[in-house]
Structure formats: structure tokens, C-alpha cells
Amino acid sequence: MKKKIFTQDYYKNFPGYPSKERLAKARVVVIECVQDIPCNPCETICPRKAIVVGKPITNLPRLIEENCTGCGRCIPICPGLAVFVVNNNYNDKESTISLPYEFLPLPEKGEEVIALNREGEKVCRAKVISVLDPEKNNRTAVITIAVPKEYSGEVRGIRLIRKNP
């Protein structure tokens, strides 16, 4: 069996990952950036100073949970596509996950897609809640999907069900 490299347990120990409590409360950014790469656009773009890199620039981005509103501006700007927004308060049964998406074709609002974990494996089916126009964010789309609550820590990708035209 293949050993999993990318798991929630691995990421949650890093300073960009929100606490359990914060995750349970409302929409919040989840930063899966774990190496000392010299990079800070997430810090620069955040209007509420919820992400801090500081000096040196190789610091891991640290999430200031109470400042974050989950606006998601940091999602498409991250060169590593390592930023997501999770909303565990979407409704009783479902959470939403907003993720960067740079493939064609784009899913449509309301479309059913397959939700994938960090290893590209199918987790469940998901519904597309919104699609942010890629043109607005220099060709990176932001897709928000709804999945059953228990999968919100696991789902980080999608695959379309429909066949390519």
C-alpha cells in the first residue's frame, strides 16, 4: 500500500493551521505551507493582518485566528496553491471548502463533483457552491464546494464527473 505523505495530521502542527475551536466556529483560512520558502504574498494581501510572515521572509505564515474573516483573498495569490478556506458553519450537515483551481473545464455552480483528499483519492461527492471567475485572479479560479462535515479536514481537491467534451 502506498504510504500517505500529505495528511491532515501532518499539516495541523504548523502555524498556518487554525485550532480545532476556531475551525468549528466560522469560516477561516487554512494554510498548508510547511517549509521555509522565502515567500510572503499571503501576508501582503491580507487586509486584516491575519497572516504574519514577518522577518525573515522564510518564516512560516502564522495565522492570527481572531483577525481572519475567511474572505479568501489569499487563496489565489499563493504561488504554492497551499491556502484554503474552510467553513464548518455552512449548515447542519455540510461544511464548505474553498480551493484554488487551475484546470479546464471549470465546474459550474450547482454541479456535482468528486471531492478528493490530499493524495488525490476520492473521499465523497460534493456540490459546487460558487466559482470565482479566474480572470479576476490572474487565471486562478476559486471553487467552493460543500461536503459532509466530517470530511472538511480531508477534502482538498476536486475532480469533475462529466466527461471532457
Binding site: I5, Q35, L116, G120, G157
Partner: peptide, 19 residues
């Protein structure tokens, strides 16, 4: 182990590439 940035690896991993 993976020698490049893990964020790049994570990107292709969740898109289904076996590393």
C-alpha cells in the same frame, strides 16, 4: 524524499499524481 517544494508536490498529489 521529495526534493522540491512540498507545496508543489501537494498540488500534483491532490490532482492524482503518484509520487
Amino acid at each position: 524524499k521529495i526534493s522540491g517544494y512540498l507545496v508543489h508536490a501537494a498540488k500534483i498529489s491532490r490532482a492524482g499524481v503518484q509520487i
